[in-house]
Nucleic acid binder design. Structure first.
Lengths: 111, 111
DNA sequence: TCTTTTCATCGTATTATTACGATAATTAAT
DNA sequence: ATTAATTATCGTAATAATACGATGAAAAGA
């Protein structure tokens, strides 16, 4: 490409894009849905659940953790992940802040 | 990478990921925000508005059009783009369908 | 201590994304 | 018919994302 020109855009635009990117892979969606389902926080039986290699899952988990959507805690020899509820609701608000901006327009105003 | 293994995931998971990907760039967020603001549907003065080359903007517009978020109509020599309201609200529902699934859990259930 | 289990990280091959100059295509205007 | 204006597409260089085997690190249990 050439790098994304982050400096051309507002903080909010970049933030939305980064968050959207973290959701831009079906494996990460699946991980989040799995965590939402089993609210008891589940570790790497995601590896069994999804059909991906352990290293790949771990990589996706790290991305979700980097944007703050999930958090992990050590549980003996294994790792326990869960949704970060605060971040989760803040993301929902951020997205809806954009989604809600739609305005219905007259017959000549739209294409 | 190796290609995303689409077949491992559900239709909904893939759909969410594709839509998220279309939002996963600040330029596309900026384009959408601009279209939301000026509900009269604006054409390629996006090129002036954002600081990107014409070809780059056109490429981003095509991506947004491909997922159905925007639609364009020819207006003389120029092109008029606007948000597709039906798709827009369907996306909002799809995302909120996931966001709303969060459940508060007891002290021992979360990590 | 040694082994097992579980997870993260590294290295790397493969594919996708981004950006933009150049060029084509289309329409309006002269 | 020419020219100007506007947009899409092509080609391509640079960079990011994906997947996974291999290896490392840390804790539990023998």
């Amino acid at each position: 490409m050439g790098v994304t020109k982050t400096d051309l855009f507002t903080k909010e635009q970049n933030e939305l894009a980064v968050l959207a990117k973290s959701l831009a892979h079906p494996a990460r969606i699946a991980i989040l849905q799995y965590l939402l389902e089993s609210n008891k926080c589940i570790n790497g039986d995601l590896v069994n659940e999804l059909g991906l290699a352990q290293a790949t899952i771990s990589q996706h988990l790290r991305e979700l953790k980097n944007v703050g959507l999930i958090q992990g805690s050590i549980e003996g020899v294994s790792m326990s992940y869960c949704i970060n509820p605060e971040k989760w609701s803040s993301i929902q608000k951020l997205f809806n802040g954009m989604f809600d901006k739609i305005q219905n327009c007259g017959p000549d105003e739209c294409c």
